[in-house]
Amino acid sequence: MTAGYLAHPQIRIARAIRELTDSAGYPPSIREIADEVRLSASTVAYHLRAMERHGIVTHTPRRSRSYQVLQ
């Protein structure tokens, strides 16, 4: 993951997605990510959209638990 253009919360979110996916065996929900990084769900959703625009994460529209870190 290239941290050069990621904000600190985005780095924490990417790390949380990887760790929660590794421990559970499936991607976390936005609420689970928010609890892990101690941010609101709406703030996490905002950062996830920005990260998706930068090609850091991907997800399947209208499907929960589908965020994955690409880099």
Score class of each variant (00 low, 15 high):
Met1Pro: 03
Met1Lys: 11
Thr2Leu: 14
Thr2Gln: 11
Thr2Lys: 15
Ala3Ile: 07
Ala3Asn: 13
Gly4His: 14
Tyr5Cys: 07
Tyr5Thr: 06
Leu6Glu: 04
Ala7His: 07
Pro9Leu: 01
Gln10Trp: 00
Gln10Tyr: 00
Ile11Asp: 04
Arg12Gln: 09
Arg12Gly: 05
Ile13Tyr: 01
Ala14Asn: 07
Ala14Thr: 02
Ala14Val: 03
Arg15His: 15
Arg15Lys: 06
Arg15Phe: 06
Ala16Asp: 01
Ala16Tyr: 01
Ala16Gln: 00
Ala16Pro: 02
Ile17Pro: 02
Arg18Glu: 09
Arg18Val: 06
Glu19Asp: 09
Glu19Arg: 09
Leu20Gln: 05
Thr21Cys: 04
Asp22Ala: 14
Asp22Cys: 10
Asp22Thr: 10
Ser23Cys: 10
Ser23Glu: 13
Ser23Ala: 13
Ala24Trp: 10
Ala24Arg: 14
Ala24Asn: 10
Gly25Pro: 11
Gly25Met: 08
Gly25Ala: 08
Tyr26Asp: 11
Pro28Arg: 06
Pro28Trp: 07
Ser29Cys: 05
Ser29Val: 05
Ser29Arg: 15
Ile30Ser: 02
Ile30Thr: 06
Ile30Val: 09
Arg31Ile: 05
Arg31Lys: 09
Arg31Glu: 12
Arg31His: 14
Arg31Tyr: 10
Glu32Ala: 14
Glu32Phe: 06
Ile33Gly: 00
Ala34Leu: 08
Asp35Gly: 03
Asp35Phe: 05
Glu36Trp: 01
Val37Gly: 04
Val37Cys: 04
Val37Pro: 02
Val37Trp: 04
Val37Ala: 07
Arg38Ile: 09
Arg38Glu: 15
Leu39Pro: 03
Leu39Ser: 03
Ser40Gly: 08
Ser40Ala: 11
Ser40Ile: 02
Ala41Tyr: 13
Ala41Pro: 06
Ser42Pro: 07
Thr43Ile: 08
Thr43Met: 13
Val44Asn: 02
Val44Tyr: 09
Ala45His: 15
Ala45Pro: 08
Tyr46Ile: 10
Tyr46Pro: 12
Tyr46Ala: 11
His47Trp: 04
Leu48Thr: 01
Arg49Ala: 06
Arg49Thr: 13
Arg49Ser: 15
Arg49Pro: 06
Arg49Trp: 06
Ala50Glu: 07
Ala50Arg: 15
Met51Ile: 05
Glu52Val: 02
Arg53Met: 12
Arg53Phe: 08
Gly55Leu: 09
Gly55Arg: 12
Ile56His: 03
Val57Arg: 00
Val57Asn: 00
Val57Met: 03
Val57Thr: 04
Val57His: 01
His59Phe: 13
His59Ser: 12
Thr60His: 14
Pro61Gly: 03
Pro61Asp: 11
Pro61Cys: 10
Pro61Met: 04
Pro61Tyr: 05
Arg62Asp: 11
Arg62Pro: 00
Arg63Cys: 12
Arg63Ala: 08
Ser64Pro: 13
Ser64Gln: 11
Ser64Lys: 12
Ser64Met: 15
Arg65Asp: 04
Ser66His: 08
Ser66Glu: 08
Tyr67Trp: 15
Tyr67Asp: 00
Tyr67Pro: 03
Tyr67His: 12
Gln68Phe: 09
Gln68Thr: 15
Gln68Cys: 10
Val69His: 01
Val69Pro: 00
Leu70Trp: 09
Leu70Ser: 14
Leu70Gln: 13
Gln71Met: 07
Gln71Val: 11
Gln71His: 14
